[in-house]
Design a protein around this nucleic acid. Structure first.
Lengths: 400, 400
DNA sequence: ATGATTTGTTGTCGTTTGGAACATATTACA
DNA sequence: TGTAATATGTTCCAAACGACAACAAATCAT
């Protein structure tokens, strides 16, 4: 008797919006394509594509460049490239630093500033530091660019709807309206999400997950394990945006107590600090840790790596059974663990029950480096324009 | 450089298709609504809705009925009802019986035949029995109805793409092209999927999950535990359609060995037969089992119920952390377990880590009864018409 | 019985894509 | 070096579709 809401009818202008959005997205995600490729991949008429690209160029969302010498018969097709005007600001607050960056369409990171902190920041600290950096950056990029908004990648459960940080165990933030406060401090629209979810987004569009419709991403950091899911080509968010918390999945029923209060969480059994401790090194960075693991001097290291891979495999098995992805992307020290003994993990996955659902799973390492979170966070700010390019009016929202 | 495929541009006729589809879906899912409600919920113009409904009536997909006395001011709006012509045939092969049904739009089950079997059927057996029943039913429903196709709900991993049964542990089918064979035997298009996935679909559209965009469904049957996921309003399938296999999720690291070869699967720890054994009864049906559990005569029963709820809670905790649903629907004996000690399970879920992600989860029992799989399977066969109503040409595909 | 209100009905208009015909720029080949 | 073949951009017109406005109809309130 009741009718589900959100079931929107479509008019002619929705077609236009959809097609503009589609073309802009294709150029954004491919970081530049010939116009003729757009006609092919969209199935739209040449004349339609011409009109769409025309409008996007008019709005400074795209630029057209000379075709590159392709040695193909026929009239060369001009290259459609992301326009330089729209930019997004990305923020990543951590325990020991706040990183802010400027990102253009096509995932071009134009600038990145990492401001180290002496102590774990309060929300007020984080907002203040970020706002300061944002002001600097807007001065620097004010001319010729239009800032669409700020995307924040936060190591926390973040409520998607309003950007409230529900729980950031390591930053010790609880129910903090981070997005709203940063919005008030900067006057820019702020979108916040979980850092690993944004890493997933970035890898899925521009990294190891390009073109893959069903994947899961797990990232191992110093403070724990986060993750995200792309299913059917879409990022999974869940009701409130908390989906992808593989770190607190149970992998050992009789295991250790986790900082979260539960027992046997993936992130209490698979930990970076244990590996670091065994290397005997102090405060290593990712590359050093991986080098030390690959060298694998002591038996203790080898044993610990295998032990952690066993637990990781349990978590992955559950995820595979639940989500049936085609690709598993491992980032951070999880990628290093895999690099040390890829066959071990592959074998553990292959030998699993319901072989059918895991037979086609391929495990790969993430390919985006330090810019991953900048790119993912920027995507949040780009979203509204990618969704409705005609909402972008040059100059209106421009700097200052 | 490469462009993602499947990114389709939209033309004018896509608008029509989308709107026709939308209207038909709304009527199908609501099982009858006033035309005026369609204008409101779609946002489309009155005249547009009139045209759309007109075309759908013309095609015999909808019928319009006298408005019911609503005591509202203004001209009464005629009721749009699912048309009786299009029907789907649903099949559910099991170890001891094959059930075939006839389902109309709006989830109306017109007929259901359960054919008991003396032994677990081979694929050939199942196809033969089904084809026989289908012939009978087509004779019975030949006049005035058009059979769109056959939907099959199978207790197995089913490859969505082609309906191949990859693995049915209890039927002992491995890599059997069930859909293709039934198609050959009946001449009707056949769509097959995992039974619990189809149960999820049915509950989400017509049952306990109506209007809920993010839910998980777990069903406990005699042969194990299956499930399914709706996320962001869409059924999750995974690459091959194997998503939702909660039954083989790890809940006990040191647990028993499962028939699947792994250790500690949910469905080895949470089992119907253990409960049945403790009741002392023999071959009970669902209601009898539930009554016996609710009576809870022996301490042993009580203990076992709580033990199973503990393991179920582990699986649900993992699922909640991964998927962040708003609702968990429990079917089969899992619903009975919950009925015995709802507070126990609620408490286990509420006390979990990352409270934010589980705070809003509500656990409910499934509401669709024995028709659940018929409705879910029929949905598969209806899908193509719901997606493109103008493909439905009356009489063309009709009986015989 | 009259007015207010809501909805169905009809005809016209604007928007958007599709398509055909032509123009243009490149390669292939003699 | 010139001509043909090919692919693509460009221009103009037609077709499809929903939006809108004006009017008609059917109910309730007073």
């Amino acid at each position: 008797m009741t009718i589900a809401p959100g079931a929107d009818g479509r008019g002619n202008s929705d077609v236009r919006r959809h097609n503009l959005s589609l073309v802009l997205r294709l150029v954004h995600q491919s970081q530049g394509v010939p116009r003729s490729a757009l006609t092919r991949s969209t199935g739209l008429n040449r004349s339609t594509i011409a009109a769409l690209v025309g409008e996007l160029v008019e709005r400074e969302l795209l630029v057209e460049a000379e075709p590159d010498a392709s040695n193909q018969v026929g009239r060369p097709s001009p290259l459609a490239l992301p326009g330089p005007r729209p930019i997004a600001i990305a923020v990543n607050p951590e325990i020991d630093a706040i990183t802010v960056g400027v990102v253009g369409l096509g995932a071009t990171v134009l600038q990145r500033i990492r401001r180290p902190l002496s102590k774990s920041p309060s929300v007020a600290d984080a907002v203040a530091v970020t706002a300061g950096l944002v002001t600097e950056l807007r001065r620097e990029f004010g001319a010729g660019h239009t800032v669409l908004g700020i995307g924040a990648a936060i190591p926390a459960l973040v409520r998607a709807r309003d950007g409230v940080v529900r729980l950031a165990p390591h930053l010790h933030w609880v129910d903090e309206p981070f997005a709203a406060e940063l919005e008030a401090a900067t006057g820019l629209p702020v979108f916040a999400a979980n850092d690993a979810n944004l890493g997933t987004l970035a890898e899925s569009i521009f990294g190891a997950g390009r073109g893959v419709a069903d994947l899961i991403y797990l990232n191992g950091g110093a403070s724990g394990i986060g993750g995200g899911i792309i299913s059917g080509g879409r990022a999974l968010s869940g009701v409130e945006g908390y989906a992808g918390e593989f770190g607190h999945t149970v992998v050992a029923t009789g295991g250790e107590r986790c900082h979260c209060g539960a027992v046997g969480c993936l992130e209490t059994e698979v930990r970076r600090d244990r590996l670091v401790a065994l290397t005997g090194l102090d405060d290593v960075d990712s590359d050093e840790l991986e080098a030390a693991l690959l060298a694998g001097e002591t038996a203790a290291i080898r044993t610990e790596v295998l032990r952690q891979l066993d637990f990781l495999a349990v978590a992955l098995r559950n995820a595979v059974n639940i989500l049936n992805p085609s690709t598993i992307i491992l980032g951070g020290f999880l990628g290093s663990l895999y690099a040390v003994a890829p066959n071990q993990l592959d074998a553990l996955l292959a030998s699993q029950p319901l072989a059918a659902s895991s037979e086609a799973v391929s495990v790969v390492r993430s390919v985006l480096g330090a810019n991953r979170l900048m790119i993912g966070a920027a995507e949040l700010a780009f979203e509204s324009v990618l969704d409705d390019p005609s909402s972008f009016v040059t100059g209106e929202k421009s700097a200052r």
